[in-house]
């Protein structure tokens, strides 16, 4: 199954994979080869990619995303998300600081637009922090 993970800052991943777990509006789904054609929303959460069938859980690639859209059809899956940060790219402390800053932004928000933005920022940083924490504990991430 060909996975294309495309973000606003360029394509992150374009390769054959065995399994993709992604957070959708209706809950987490796992996608394998020959999945039925599906268009669904991706919500802020963790995308997990297993490249080969025999890969262990710990060997999977984990991305924090802030949501987007997934187009699944036959032997390909296209994930169009604004951002996808690989667990290795996230520094836990930075994510924690960013989350605190986002929360502060929410308290200080003056209008609806600012509030929405702050909430989106909180979602995003919370997911990043989660991914970073889970990597530290060496556990498989669950959201």
């Amino acid at each position: 199954m060909k996975l294309e993970l495309i973000t606003l800052s360029g394509p992150k991943l374009q390769e054959d994979v065995y399994e993709v777990i992604l957070p959708t509006g209706d809950g987490e789904i796992a996608v394998y080869q020959h999945h039925m054609p599906l268009v669904t929303t991706v919500v802020p959460g963790v995308i997990t990619v297993r490249r080969k069938k025999e890969d262990s859980d710990a060997a999977r690639d984990v991305f924090a995303t802030n949501g987007g859209i997934a187009e699944i059809g036959g032997s390909q899956i296209r994930l169009l998300v604004d951002e996808a940060d690989h667990a290795d790219e996230i520094v836990e402390q930075e994510a924690a600081e960013a989350l605190a800053a986002a929360k502060k932004l929410k308290e200080e928000a003056k209008d609806e637009l600012e509030l929405e933005r702050a909430e989106a920022l909180i979602d995003r940083q919370a997911v990043r922090l989660k991914v970073a924490e889970l990597r530290r504990h060496g556990r498989r991430p669950r959201v």
Binding site: G25, P37, L38, V39, T40, T41, G68, I69, E71, G73
Partner: peptide, 25 residues
Amino acid sequence: ISAQLNLAEFEPSVEHVLGSAAKKL
């Protein structure tokens, strides 16, 4: 139109997918 998309299911619903995703796109 790609034949694949024509058959595609929309989850949770067409409106929901379009409401959030279309705006983003």
